[in-house]
Design a protein around this nucleic acid. Structure first.
Length: 295
DNA sequence: GTCCAGGCCAGAC
DNA sequence: GTCTGGCCTGGA
């Protein structure tokens, strides 16, 4: 039997499943018809539902509550995080709007591969690629409400996928080579998943940047979403626009924006990035105006 | 048909 | 080190 329990804890004020999963960090989850969410971590899965001030947990037999507590970063007091950053312009609104956001602790290999796919790509295509990779090359790890759940392929499983399959079945486009190569480098231990945990953030960042398909933005996403390096500030186009418009009040390079985030948010930069990203997208900040025709 | 998206990379300066 | 253009794919 799977494990099931419900609880009402102080972290409930900062725990909104839709916000957690749709703020840009995760692609391996599903919203159920009843408003609950199902997600997978390695070979474990969980289904969660929030009702009022209670959360109902239902997870696979092979996992423990503590594991999911860690996955959802429940040991961090987000109220304190917000108190530290809300003095910065726009942060009061952003942290209020996305107050249920939490930064997930995701599997490093899956996160590396997923964010290589994410480069210059659309969310629906990223989600589909992750789902197809898991269904076709991962392992079936259970069934929930009539739907089979699959783990993301581990390095051994990933190495069995050909470049042709990556391009023509998973449809990752020109990212096929980078995925193929990176998968092999990780399997061979050239990039050491175990050792990575113990490296300093600058060292780990350098290691990640050596992987094909991993540039500054993707490396920062991996550092933040898989390695809990909360001081990093991934600068994508949305964050770039938000920072230029509301913080810098002028055009700035990626480097300038990154430096500004260090100065303003310090060790909480990663959290700030998530609030800004979610808020910026919601209100369409800096979105390019479509030129009317015939003008 | 045309444009471009939650960047990366190679080549040019 | 900084800047520019090209890139799979598919939905608007």
């Amino acid at each position: 039997m799977e494990n099931m329990f419900r609880e009402n804890k102080n972290w409930i004020d900062h725990f909104n499943l839709l916000e957690i999963f749709s703020c840009g960090q995760a692609f391996h989850w599903e919203e159920e018809k009843d408003g609950s969410f199902t997600t997978v971590y390695q070979d474990q899965w969980v289904n969660l539902k929030k009702e009022g001030d209670q959360v109902f947990w239902f997870f696979s037999e092979n996992s423990k509550k503590e594991m999911w507590y860690s996955y959802f970063d429940l040991g961090t007091d987000y109220k304190k995080v917000i108190e530290k950053i809300e003095a910065v312009p726009l942060m009061k609104e952003a942290t209020q709007y996305g107050r249920g956001i939490r930064i997930l602790k995701q599997d490093p290999f899956e996160t590396i591969m997923t964010f290589i796919i994410s480069a210059n790509n659309h969310i629906p295509r990223i989600t589909k690629a992750v789902k197809d990779l898991s269904r076709l090359y991962g392992r079936e790890i259970g069934e929930y409400r009539g739907r089979k759940l699959y783990s993301f392929p581990n390095p051994e499983e990933f190495a069995k996928i050909s470049m042709d399959e990556l391009r023509n079945i998973i449809k990752v486009g020109y990212r096929d080579k980078a995925l193929y190569e990176t998968g092999r480098r990780i399997l061979s231990g050239d990039y050491d998943l175990k050792k990575a945990e113990s490296l300093s953030t600058p060292e780990l960042r350098k290691e990640l940047l050596n992987l094909p398909g991993v540039g500054p933005k993707v490396a920062d996403c991996i550092l933040l979403f898989a390695y809990q390096r909360m001081e990093v500030f991934p600068v994508d186009v949305w964050i770039h626009r938000v920072m230029e418009e509301f913080i810098l009040k002028e055009k700035g390079s990626k480097k300038e924006i990154y430096q500004k985030s260090v100065e303003l948010f310090g060790k909480e930069a990663g959290y700030a990035q998530q609030y800004l990203f979610y808020y910026g997208r919601a209100i369409g900040i800096g979105k390019k105006e479509k030129k009317p025709k015939n003008m």
